[in-house]
Amino acid sequence: MRKSVNHIFLLFILFQVNLGICGDLTLNKLATTNNLDPNNYKMMSDEQAGKQIGPTYHYHYLDRYHSVGENLKNLGTVYAITWGLYFATQPEAWHEGSWEAWKKNFGKVVFDQDEPFWNWFVHPFAGSQLYLFYRANGYSRIDSLGMSFISALLFEFTVEIYTEPASIQDIFQTPVFGSILGLGLETASLYFLNSGNAAGKVLGHVLNLYTLFWFYEGKIKIVPMYDGPKSAAITFTETF
């Protein structure tokens, strides 16, 4: 029985090592202490192992339930930011639009005649950032898409109508294409963030800036502890 437990524990460690979460500092000691053949595992001296003791971080996404209040708070935050960003990135829109146009455009949906640059790059990119924002806040992939859809609807029907009617392409392509792009960015950034090297981490954060913000819920602190041959443990700490 004890041997089985030891095997399970060793397999767990191997699994974590495979994921790149922690180094294999304890493998040689574990193998020796548990009467397993240490030659079957990657060996590391105690000096090497000692250098690796200290916290490391693993990045992932934590999907959890959100209350209605939290949903409204997140939607409200994004909505306020879209008002600011719309006029910050297109200052001429303030002069081209008007509150009269806002009233006239309210409730209208049209096919816009915009160039592919806007419909195929700007809006999907904006959608990917919405998706990643909600993912960082603990929403599942499909919930992030749903929240992005609501945010896109709010933007199209109450912000952009200051200058032009809501566009059916933007309403669909911002959250849908954005989520597909966001999924790609999410996958790539997690790969680089967990690659274990500094350049990869930088690239991972650049691809997914929300991993740097306080509201990102998927950062796990891992503290390997090794105190001689009889004591080895890993502590996982996640804050949300």
Partner: peptide
């Protein structure tokens, strides 16, 4: 009984 996103 769930939402889904597909692409082709």
């Amino acid at each position: 009984n769930d939402w889904g996103l597909k692409g082709a």
